[in-house]
Amino acid sequence: MSETDPGKTSSSSSGDDFAARLAAARGRRDAGRETTSDVAARNTGQLGLGFRIAVDLLAGVTVGVGMGLVLDRWLGTSPWFLLVFLILGFAAGMTNMLRTVRANDAARARVAAERREREHKDAR
């Protein structure tokens, strides 16, 4: 182990050695650091998630209805575009919800895995 011997490292502190030590230090720094989305996954409760996906659905339906109404007024085909875009907007809202929930699940799984790993390391 060269780094336990202070005399040896100071004598052979070439550029390469410094780069390696810097990389090692960066690795140590980033290993324990949580990503920002991990913090969010830990801190936002189920209520916050529920509210978020509710807004996601609402936004999709709103845009769908808005587009349908505009197209109907423009082409004079009321109410057909409204009906079609209502359904498409609902589907888009569902897509939004699924994406939010999937991202949330992924972040939660990552946090849980890291916690297990840490506990495992502590137990040893």
Binding site: A59, G60, T62, A92
Partner: peptide, 11 residues
């Protein structure tokens, strides 16, 4: 997908 994209500023 277009509606989903346009709904971003609203949500």
């Amino acid at each position: 997908e277009v509606i989903s994209y346009l709904s971003r500023p609203i949500s």
